[in-house]
């Protein structure tokens, strides 16, 4: 019996080890993902994003409780930033989720953003998928809403909750960072602090001015996560959003769209890898790059030149087909 079978049988060690494969982006990733294909859409994905310290982990902790009270299982992917200087990271989200440390119906995994070029979103999404494939009814993804990558991750969630807190000016930051556009639900946490009413009023006005969907009015919910206030309302809203997505067929459409975009992403990445790899020793392409670099030619004309060069394209194709051969041998092995 192999590690994927073990995971399906509920072996936590096997599940953890599979998640490490994704985390480290080892060559086994495609194989693993193909094995869980049939099971990954069973669960529901909830994203939590927002400024550092706004209370995301505390909210997630309380959401876990709500889900467990319904006798359902939940996986959590908690993402924290990698230090660009050392490559290290402090992953501290678990601290707030200690109530569930020994609950077999809960599996929490921390993930560092690592410096990878877009690799994080795939690792995080796949982590969530494996958690769902392992039989979790919900998977919650927590990430600091600072960059595009983080936004990409939560945007793959079925319901995205944006967490703000009063008195920090982070609502303006959030609007600037574009995270308001991905919110299905907005939470104003730390509603015990002053400035809450003003923030809620501002948000309502803003939401009123730009309603995104005719079928969903983004609600603003005030919570005090540490005191369990507003939590039930939040969970009910998430459930409501889920029902609306299901009833309108949006959930199915969203999943379809995600499957295709992920597929295209992989194709794109593979092609790019092949092309970049083959260019190291292609003098014609290098010459074009040098001209672009020196400003002697504009990038559009340069690209035109590349695609107008039949020999160059042929060399790419050859490279690609040799790559396919290598891949085939690897799969056969």
């Amino acid at each position: 019996m192999d590690i994927v079978d073990k995971m399906f049988q509920g072996d936590r060690l096997a599940l953890a080890r599979l998640l490490s494969i994704l985390e480290n982006n080892t060559p086994e990733v495609p194989l693993v993902m193909s094995r869980i294909q049939q099971n990954q859409d069973n669960g529901y994905y909830i994203g939590f994003t927002g400024a550092p310290g706004s209370g995301k982990s505390t909210l997630v902790d309380k959401m876990i409780l709500q889900i467990r009270n319904n006798n359902l299982e939940v996986g959590v992917v908690a993402i924290d930033p990698t230090s660009p200087f050392s490559g290290g990271a402090i992953l501290g989200d678990r601290i707030r989720m200690q109530n569930h440390a020994l609950d077999p119906g809960v599996f929490i995994r921390s993930l560092a953003t690592r410096g990878s070029l877009g690799g994080l979103s795939r690792a995080a999404k796949n982590t969530a998928r494996i958690l769902n494939a392992s039989g979790k009814d919900y998977c919650i993804i927590e990430t600091v809403g600072v960059g595009q990558v983080e936004i990409d991750i939560v945007d793959t969630a079925d319901t995205t909750v944006v967490v703000l807190m009063p008195d920090t000016g982070d609502s303006i930051q959030a609007i600037k960072a574009g995270i308001m556009e991905i919110a299905d639900i907005i939470v104003v946490n730390k509603a015990d602090l002053k400035g809450t009413d003003q923030l809620i009023a501002d948000l309502m006005l803003m939401l009123h001015e730009n309603q995104r969907h005719s079928w969903w009015q983004v609600p603003v919910i005030a919570t005090q996560a540490d005191k369990n206030i507003g939590i039930k309302e939040l969970f009910e809203k998430i459930e409501e959003h889920k029902e609306v997505l299901k009833d309108t067929g949006m959930l199915v459409a969203k999943r379809k769209e995600q499957r295709v975009s992920e597929f295209m992403e992989i194709i794109e990445q593979t092609l790019l890898d092949v092309i970049l790899e083959s260019q190291k020793d292609d003098s014609e392409f290098c010459e074009i790059i040098n001209n672009v670099m020196a400003g002697l030619i504009d990038p559009y004309s340069a690209a035109k030149k590349v695609f107008g060069n039949e020999n160059l394209i042929k060399r790419w194709m050859m490279r690609l087909s040799s790559e396919i051969l290598i891949e085939r041998r690897r799969v056969d092995a």
Binding site: I90, Q98, A112
Partner: peptide, 25 residues
């Protein structure tokens, strides 16, 4: 972290069961 490690901090007041469960996950 500054040495380049990824550090999962569990917080205080852990039991042996909690530590091992977290280490597995």
């Amino acid at each position: 972290r500054n040495a380049g490690f990824e550090v999962v901090y569990t917080g205080q007041r852990q039991t042996a069961e909690m530590v091992v469960a977290a280490a597995i996950e």
